[in-house]
Nucleic acid binder design. Structure first.
Lengths: 321, 321
DNA sequence: GCATAAATTGTTAACGTTATCATTAGGAGA
DNA sequence: TCTCCTAATGATAACGTTAACAATTTATGC
């Protein structure tokens, strides 16, 4: 433990409050006194105790970032949003407390929640958290920012249909989260709007990784060779499906179209380059942080509600031209 | 602000300390008293103020994770170590404070540092931080965990040489960090040991991404077509180099061997599958956290020093069989 | 029934800051 | 010289909790 204001007070002969003022209110302590105190501060390596400060000010400059347990900790999506959040907050004097437990939120000035399951969202309503809170996703009576996943999946399915694909399969993510459901909904919407048969057998839900995509692809192409396009709920799934197409002697994009969803910067790595949906995830992290700081510092001026980002279609070589 | 112990004290008629004991030392308060107090706690939604607790206990259960500004916040490497760290710490009741500033470290129980530049490491020695600290990397007089980058790059270069490649180029990462220097050193060591010419013209340092790898590859193959293998300092660089090989009509692995370094789980995505070095990065994050908690909780029993992980060679199809 | 031990609850102070109000010293104005 | 004002510094209490000790009540043994 380092030296405290009291300790310095004994050493210098000045009271603790004068030393505090020297450091925090430069106008109030000048001349010789100031010099002597600053000298002692330096000599004894005084650093203020932020915990004590937090107790007085009733604010910690710490923001709680809740990422639930069941979320793969190496999940790209989560990591990139976190990066955006901590980037913005860091620039504004806040730190991010990464934790997986609810009950620690008393220490912080505000909360950002993400990756919630449908049940989590229900629980949220009953919890009555008193601190400012924003959610990545969408839920009633909570300030939210989200990607319009329904729209995104509609856009890319529309695109596939425009390019002439007709027997379109869907490989989705099996997690019980709104965004996964929304993406499936988008696929269904688009198929219906174009009077295409959304054959239930063409729909697979699985874990979000290339290997699962590969297995799903192998099976779909084996049992339903008439399928001419596979719309995937993530780029990783699509990467696996492309490999499955290769191993099933189906050429991409001629004999089989494949689409992704995410746009997490793997453009140069997956071949052929994916037709996918780009979501500005890092930027959304920044926006979440911005919104939260607004709520903390100007509670009256924030118009609550949900704001959606419309994602962007990125056309690659995994669908016909 | 919620209700405090004092508030509950007035309401219930019991003293603050009795309520505190009811919640923290179940043995000491039983029967009717306990019931009444727990009832009030529930009714008025009391939650303890962890800041005040931290002031008393002089510990916050928060660990500081320092990731410097100049590091790309979406960097895979950083993100995966962080994931390992916060995973382990979370299971042990600690939270991770992600911050990019030095001066906030008084609030925490310990520090984990990573991604330091050579200058950062020098500065570290003069800072004299009093809290328990561990470093991902290696530096004198600090407890460290690191990957043996020299050894790793030697292993993979040795492997390339064994497979018959002779004109071996090196594409490195230009950041001023020990691990980048070490990887270059490993390449040089291996070349010298095999009496091969480590031609300076065959060596390029660039940013760590696929695009830079692509550009480096294009140039190397254009000006020095005799090159028969390109050893890269990361998988992303290698992915770019493979694409450069394709565009330069050089077949991988027959006409050109390519190796990566990282093994960040892109095995299924990059084609052909890379010969690379696998580093258990997530696990290293866990080990860093473990070591730090040991230092915090059993300061006497920790044998300080540097421990190295020997990375693992993963043979793929980007080098000859 | 009394002495003593054990269980229960309370009082005070402490953790390291800062806010509020009080005090002292020095200077300006008459 | 006296009053009043300003500037500089200090004393006390407060933030919400727990530690250490004290006081009270209840139980136990003879």
């Amino acid at each position: 433990m380092g030296i405290t204001l009291k300790g310095l007070s004994k050493i210098t002969g000045y009271s603790a409050i004068t030393i505090s003022r020297t450091l925090n209110k430069p106008d109030l302590v000048k001349g010789k006194t100031r010099e002597k105190i600053l000298c002692a501060v330096k000599k004894y390596h005084y650093t203020p105790n932020n915990v004590a400060k937090a107790l007085v000010y009733n604010r910690t400059n710490i923001i709680y970032l809740y990422v639930p347990y069941n979320l793969d900790p190496t999940n790209q999506f989560v990591l990139q949003v976190s990066a955006g959040i901590s980037g913005y907050l860091g620039e504004h004097g806040y730190s991010v407390l990464l934790s997986k437990k609810w009950y620690q939120h008393e220490t912080v000035d505000g909360l950002i929640l993400m990756g919630l399951t449908i049940e989590d969202e229900e629980n949220l309503k009953t919890l009555s958290i008193e601190k400012p809170l924003v959610l990545f996703g969408h839920s009633d009576n909570v300030d939210c920012i989200d990607v319009d996943n329904i729209k995104g999946m509609e856009m890319i399915t529309d695109h596939a249909i425009e390019k002439g694909y007709k027997k379109i399969a869907f490989v989705g993510i099996s997690e019980n989260k709104k965004f996964t459901q929304d993406r499936y909904l988008g696929y269904q919407n688009s198929m219906q709007r174009h009077n295409l048969d959304a054959n239930k057998n063409y729909v697979v839900f699985t874990s979000n990784n290339a290997k699962s995509g590969y297995l799903a692809g192998i099976n779909l192409l084996k049992y339903y060779p008439e399928i001419d396009c596979i719309v995937c709920s993530s780029d990783d799934l699509a990467a696996g499906v492309i490999q499955a197409a290769n191993d099933s002697n189906r050429s991409v994009p001629e004999s089989l179209g494949v689409t992704g969803f995410d746009g997490l910067g793997k453009e140069l790595i997956i071949k052929p380059e994916l037709t996918t949906i780009h979501q500005p995830i890092y930027e959304i992290g920044v926006e979440l942080a911005k919104l939260l700081l607004k709520k903390i510092n100007h509670p009256r001026n924030v118009d609550a509600g949900i704001s959606y980002y419309t994602p962007e279609l990125k056309i690659g070589n995994s669908t016909r031209i």
